[in-house]
Design a protein around this nucleic acid. Structure first.
Lengths: 209, 209
DNA sequence: TCGGTAATTACCCAAATGGGTAATTGTAAC
DNA sequence: GTTACAATTACCCATTTGGGTAATTACCGA
């Protein structure tokens, strides 16, 4: 029966909040029954009555929108949160995405586009500008080139799999002493001293697949 | 003098290749002097004469476009590669981005939009659909909730920083035995047995910031 | 109030790890 | 043809780690 998209709104500016909820409620297929001026109030309300999409201002008094995303996603992992911002290419937008937001919209977007973006998000999309998208994809692409030899990369790969000297040696048909030598060289090249560090660095810098 | 954007093209279909290079060369501010029907030829050529943007077909005979991206990015890390595809929401698009492409364009895009996208890419954007963008951001957001207690997360965080029992104990003002106990619990909860494994799992599943 | 969980500490012990040093072989570059 | 580096192996030794077991305190929900 209810094919409407339930939109939640978190925005401290009273006028904007009124305007947006009015707009949403006035559009067939959309409804906004929950509009709050702070994350704190929104979080409490959303826990008992969860909307489909949340529009969240980034700059909020008290708990920031970014922190709000973190908390909401902790409690409601499947909730789709779209940030509202005035600064198109702000670092805060990127941080919001890292915290769990699925996209963002610029404040002042024409109503038609706003509704379109909400619908797109509801259907699995992620509204964002080309510039932010680039930032996002760069953050997960490999940082080439690596200073390691091919053999060392093989060893590193297994190291990250949690394997020990003996197992790695068996897999590569070499002695454990050789494995040890490779690992020592890897440590030197990456400037680390322990297993944990090398695994952390390798994955974070995407030195291994 | 040369404010033109140099576009490289890799596309096996002769007609499409002709058409696109003709289009690009016929547009002020754009030039396409390098159009190839295979990755192999393109890679060789781009190494000596590198374009600003490469448009790369995904489905290519011989080396695939995805593999092509991998190889090109290995040799020319700063090269911007945009994929060309017929299937909008293909897994291959996502894989291309993982391999190092910055975005993709659907074949058959109107000329104006194609040129616009090239320009946007040149200026630091990343052309992609909302759906792909979502996939990309999901791939790097935390997989909440975590089974660990707050204290355990603190310990895990330090573990991933490569710190040992003693250092962690000092930082948290507890005994090394306690640290050990926490780590043992973490291992049990995450079903791992070694440092390397826990670090790997924690980072990959984004259990820590 | 009882039971579960989190946090804390302790001890024992086998296995794994990290650092130092050194040598041989093959290959690629100069 | 010599230099440089990658890959291979070896040995010694101190430190760290991981597993087992057990106990106390505190808090929270039923």
């Amino acid at each position: 029966m209810e094919n409407v998209i339930k939109v939640g709104l978190v925005e401290d500016d009273h006028d904007i909040r009124q305007l947006m909820s009015f707009l949403i409620n006035g559009s067939p297929g959309y409804v906004c029954e929950q509009a709050f001026e702070s994350c704190e109030k929104a979080i409490e309300a959303f826990e008992t009555n969860c909307p489909d999409i949340v529009l969240m201002d980034i700059d909020l008094p008290g708990m920031s929108g970014i922190e709000g995303v973190r908390v909401l996603k902790e409690k409601l992992p499947d909730l789709n949160i779209v940030m509202l911002t005035v600064h198109e290419d702000d670092e805060a937008v990127f941080d919001s995405l890292c915290a769990g937001a699925v996209g963002y919209l610029v404040k002042g977007l024409p109503p038609i586009q706003l509704l379109q973006a909400i619908k797109e998000t509801f259907e699995g999309g992620a509204p964002m500008s080309s510039a932010i998208a680039r930032k996002v994809i760069l953050s997960f692409q490999p940082n080439l080139p690596s200073p390691l030899s091919d053999r060392e990369k093989e060893v590193l790969q297994m190291l990250c799999g949690g394997e020990n000297y003996k197992t790695i040696a068996e897999r590569l048909y070499i002695s454990t002493n050789t494995v040890k030598a490779h690992i020592k060289n890897i440590y030197t090249k990456l400037n680390v001293n322990t297993r944990a560090e090398v695994v952390s660095k390798a994955i974070r810098q995407k030195l291994i697949r």
